[in-house]
């Protein structure tokens, strides 16, 4: 499944609908759905929020991976940003030291089974795998 998405949070509804169809078509265990939804949203939102030098659509791709799923998000005409290089979040910090920022990419890296990054010709592609159960 491939779909181009405009750079708007309004596309999150469409992403959820596409993921619904993909999970049903490929009979992927619903237990991993929350992880997949969260990781797609965090990566998509990060691209929309920080890759502001382009108006190009973001390409979302989903393919079956064993009993699970492989997802890629590709952003065109942007700078390099490997989500694995995002600053660490101290989840043990007390409340007054905690800030909302940075948590999304931290969660992605923690929750996926694997993550891969490619950058070439100003095209940034993040691919992750969530294994089925």
């Amino acid at each position: 499944m491939n779909r181009k998405l405009s750079r708007s949070f309004d596309e999150l509804k469409e992403i959820v609908a596409l993921t619904d169809v993909f999970f049903k078509e490929h009979k992927i265990n619903a237990d991993v759905r929350h992880t997949v939804d969260l990781c797609i949203e965090e990566l998509f939102v990060n691209m929309v929020t920080y890759d502001t030098e382009t108006d190009a659509d973001i390409l979302l791709e989903m393919t079956p991976h064993g009993k699970g799923i492989q997802v890629s998000l590709t952003d065109f005409g942007v700078h390099r940003f490997d989500p694995r290089d995002a600053p660490a979040v101290d989840i043990n910090a007390p409340l007054d030291e905690r800030t909302p920022g940075g948590l999304g990419l931290y969660l992605v890296v923690k929750m996926v089974d694997s993550i891969h990054y490619e950058y070439q010709d100003k095209t940034s592609k993040i691919t992750f795998v969530v294994n089925g159960k």
């Binding site: 939804d37 939102v45 409340l95 909302p100």
Partner: peptide, 19 residues
């Protein structure tokens, strides 16, 4: 049904205000 880091941020800001 679902919460992302944006929702966690809402809870964190609210928690800080109330605390």
């Amino acid at each position: 049904e679902y919460i992302s880091s944006a929702g966690l941020g809402v809870l964190l800001r609210t928690h800080k205000r109330i605390m």
